[in-house]
Nucleic acid binder design. Structure first.
Length: 849
RNA sequence: GCCGGAGUGGCGGAACUGGUAGACGCAGCGGACUUAAACUCCGCGGCCCGCGAGGGCGUCAGGGUUCGAAUCCCUGCUCCGGCACCA
């Protein structure tokens, strides 16, 4: 097609058509969901709401374009789709910006939201904007407070003093918000230190076992494994040792330990207590006092990083006391060492150096005895007696017990059970389960979050703020005064209040809630965003929950996704909701990295701005390109080089739809039907291709395989291109193929599909009705079936020929045909076939010797 | 160290449940159109040998199972994600 001819019809100009349709769709409320509509099945689709950083980057588009395509696909398939959007609007960056630019966090956040709304709209996505929630809105966070008060009443929230992870920027952190071997803050990267503080906790550990049960949800295995590991359930036993009396002390104190290896109890040669263990002062012998106190003090000063490093050699000191092993009455020394953690189990262990690597290292260093009590099936008596070079940790049905009194000779697994039973009988222990999971520390020492709704009264202690006084609002005027400190603390008008119980003077809690509280129930709020009676409308929730499909990044596997499950279960137990799982299906999309393969960040200067791409190529091209890049769960480095190919594809669709008879200049063949084809054959080929594509594409939308879905649309477009300008163009079959192409394109490239749809309707003189309200087309199976098929022919597994055969051909017939092929005859080289394999009509393999 | 996942052309990637490796696209090359360029269109394209027909090799490496392996099994290497002394 020459330039002159091309101007005969309008060019494809995304910059003019896209905003026009976006406006039109919004005017028509095309994507607002009627939550009361019960005539169609519901489909609750949720994408993780963005943090209000101010700008969307290409990663947001990568996450949200396919999500929007899913929404549109399901809507076309007759479901009532709800795809809400909102903003995660509390958090430290707002405060940092406030300090730096002297702008109020609220103002910073709200203006960022304005910009992000504009950017999100430019995607042309089907978000139900009228259901939007913004978490820094008092109408939202008052329900954080309300739910917190219900948790408090139910004993699910409590205040406790313990050593906590403290980040100089973010204040205290939950356990899962501290990352890496160097123990840094997940958000700002600062190293954390330990501090002893009074803080608020939520009892996530109450739900440890239920959180391990994933039977009601379909989540990626990797996430389930991560959560399982994070919860870290260990089955074992608690064993009571008793302290020995000596010349200065009476003894008789009970020292309980947790062990996962009761089968090794005869191998315990010493005990180790965490330096913080309550019995340490009492057990310290007078002549060891100085040394022990110095060690405890040093351990207290150390940062977590030093203490937790596995590289560091073991340290510890002897207390001077001894304990008695309940199974054999043996007297073993009690040590303290910082490799034993105060916060896990009982804060004390029995050390079995022969069968635990850490205890082994410690015993070696301090010359403590190492006694083997478990041996593998091949180990001889002589070897059992020989000194050990490493700890032997395996214990299954193969391994047997040695040096274990009456248990000697038993398989380790049996010994485990027998010893636990014996301990229980004698009252010296019991089977016990421990979890790595800790309760969720939610207190944060900063301004821009939800105030924790309690006051402290000198006479009444901790008093919850009554419901009718909610929300406890953040004061508008904030004085940062240049300190990194929480400005609420120095805000007298906020802090000083009266006790709701006695009316006397009281102080408000100045800590605010972890922002993960906000995201732990936000999808419930989307269902009734302005309900002023309850956080969740149970009627609507009953119909719409759980979320059918949740999409978002894998980085939230053990934080947000675990908190959300905990909240849902706790809220269900409080009768606030019906469902015990928040998200039925989860999909983790991959992450888009910078062109350098590194995480996109302003400081690296590798951030791709989507606005710029949209103005150059159009939203449809950007969306399609992101979907085409590769599997959605894979992500990868950003490279814009391929986007031109997508533009070309959309252009070809444009001209095929509007100008079927146009022929582009090319070689002499163009504009002619393929050799041997008449118009009818061309039409048949078009119909077959269109319906086969529809069959595959429908499946790929459902399976979220967008990259191959786009590839198949391109194949169909290439075929249309071949017939464009031929006698088959503009025929009924051609128009059908175009129609199917537009319908298939509609979920992923909504603007161009709508534009062409409306132009074609106009050309036919029909009234417009949006392509996005059309039903997904049905495959014409008769058209999609071909009557000939190509069968590859192998000789000894090597491809030698291909034959076209009628579809229903019998094996004998096919075999005769194949053996007569010249290429096959040559390949056989006169040898007689030993065996002929028909792989279900898909392939023929002739085996010769 | 432990637990996951992945290694396929110059690049992104495709290949159903063991059955034609490299779909689709990018970059590249040749051609048409153009005064010219861009755009657009037609064609070529794993590597090696060959004018060609064709042949040999080829999915991280090495071994195995099978008529047949990118796909299954064993051993090793590399990369990515998670965990960080949890007794």
């Amino acid at each position: 097609m020459s330039a002159a001819e091309r101007t005969r019809i309008d060019r494809y100009e995304p910059a003019t058509i896209e905003p026009r349709w976006q406006r039109r769709w919004a005017e028509l409320d095309l994507y607002e969901t009627d939550l009361t509509d019960e005539s169609r099945p519901k489909y609750y689709l949720l994408t993780m709401y963005p943090y209000t950083s101010g700008n969307l980057h290409i990663g947001h588009w990568y996450a949200k374009s396919p999500t929007d395509a899913i929404a549109r696909f399901h809507r076309m398939n007759g479901e009532n789709v709800f795809l809400p959007i909102g903003f995660d609007a509390f958090g430290l960056p707002a405060e940092n910006a406030a300090i730096k630019n002297k702008i109020h966090p609220r103002q910073w956040t709200l203006s960022n939201i304005e910009n992000m709304r504009r950017q999100l709209r430019s995607m042309g996505a089907t978000f139900a904007w009228k259901s939007e929630v913004v978490t820094c809105d008092p109408d939202y966070y008052r329900w954080n407070q309300w739910i917190f008060l219900r948790f408090l009443e139910a004993g699910l929230a409590y205040r406790a003093s313990s050593p906590v992870d403290w980040c100089p920027n973010d204040g205290t952190l939950a356990r899962e918000q501290v990352e890496g071997a160097d123990r840094h803050c997940w958000r700002c990267g600062m190293r954390v230190v330990k501090r002893e503080l009074d803080q608020w906790y939520l009892r996530t550990t109450n739900y440890a076992d239920e959180l391990l049960d994933f039977s009601a949800i379909e989540w990626p295995e990797s996430v389930r494994i991560m959560q399982t590991n994070w919860i870290g359930r260990s089955e074992g036993a608690e064993v009571a040792f008793t302290t020995e009396p000596d010349e200065s002390r009476p003894g008789g104190d009970e020292l309980r330990v947790f062990t996962t290896r009761p089968d090794t109890l005869y191998g315990a040669t010493f005990m180790v207590l965490a330096p913080e263990h309550a019995l340490v002062p009492k057990l310290t012998h007078s002549h060891r006092k100085a040394e022990v106190e110095a060690y405890v003090a040093a351990a207290g000063r150390e940062t977590e990083i030093e203490r937790m490093s596995t590289e560091r050699p073991k340290t510890g000191v002897f207390t001077g006391s001894y304990a008695v092993n309940p199974v054999n009455g043996e007297r073993i020394p009690i040590w303290i060492a910082d490799y034993v953690l105060a916060g896990y189990g009982t804060g004390a262990i029995m050390a079995v150096p022969a069968h635990d690597e850490r205890d082994f290292e410690f015993a070696r260093k301090f010359g403590l005895p190492i006694r083997r009590v478990i041996a593998g099936p091949e180990v001889t008596d002589a070897e059992v007696a020989a000194p050990m070079e490493t700890a032997f940790v395996s214990h299954g049905t193969e391994e047997r017990m040695v040096n274990s009194g009456p248990y000697t000779g038993l398989p380790a697994k049996e010994g485990f059970a027998s010893i636990v039973a014996m301990l229980e009988k004698q009252g010296k222990g019991k089977a016990s389960v421990n979890y790595r999971l800790r309760d969720w520390l939610i207190s944060r020492q900063r301004y821009w979050g939800t105030p924790i709704p309690v006051v402290y009264c000198d006479s009444d202690g901790i008093v919850p703020v009554p419901d009718d006084q909610l929300p406890v609002r953040l004061p508008e005027k904030v004085d940062y005064a240049g300190r990194g400190d929480n400005p609420l603390k120095s805000d007298a008008a906020f802090v000083n209040t009266t006790c709701p119980r006695c009316g006397g003077q009281a102080r408000r809690e100045t800590d605010t809630m972890d922002t993960f509280i906000d995201s732990s129930w936000y999808w419930f709020r989307y269902l009734s965003p302005s309900d002023s009676n309850a956080p969740v409308d149970r009627k609507v929730e009953a119909r719409w929950c759980p979320v059918d499909q949740y999409t978002g990044g894998a980085e939230h596997a053990v934080m947000h996704l675990l908190y959300a499950r905990f909240f849902t279960k706790a809220m269900a137990d409080l009768g606030l909701v019906h469902e015990r799982e928040p998200f039925k299906r989860l999909f983790n999309q991959g992450q888009i990295l910078g062109a350098d393969g590194e995480r996109m960040s302003k400081s690296r200067g590798n951030v791709q701005d989507p606005d710029e791409l949209v103005s150059r190529f159009g939203a449809d091209a950007v969306r399609l390109f992101l979907m085409f890049m590769g599997p959605w769960d894979q992500g990868g480095p950003w490279s814009p080089t391929g986007i031109g190919g997508i533009s070309r594809f959309l252009n070809r669709v444009w001209y095929a739809a509007l100008d079927p008879h146009g022929v582009d200049a090319g070689d002499a063949e163009s504009g002619m039907l393929p050799a041997g084809q008449d118009r009818a054959a061309g039409e048949r080929a078009l119909r077959t291709a269109a319906h086969r594509t529809l069959r595959i594409v429908s499946e790929e939308y459902a399976k979220m395989r967008f990259n191959t879905m786009v590839a198949h649309l391109m194949e169909l477009s290439n075929l249309l291109q071949r017939y464009r300008g031929t006698a088959a163009a503009g025929t009924k079959a051609w128009n059908e193929a175009i129609r199917l192409m537009l319908l298939m394109l509609a979920p992923c490239a909504p603007h161009i599909a709508e534009e062409l749809w409306s132009r074609l309707a106009e050309a036919r003189g029909e009234a417009w009705s949006s392509i996005h309200t059309q039903a997904w087309p049905a495959v014409d199976e008769a058209a999609a079936t071909e009557n000939e098929r190509e069968v590859p022919v192998q000789v000894n597994g090597k491809l030698r020929d291909r034959v076209m055969v009628p579809v229903g051909i019998g094996e004998a017939e096919l075999e005769r045909l194949v053996l007569a092929r010249p290429k096959v005859v040559t390949a056989l080289d006169g040898k007689a076939p030993l065996k002929v394999i028909h792989a279900g009509g898909k392939l023929v393999n002739i085996v010769v010797r």
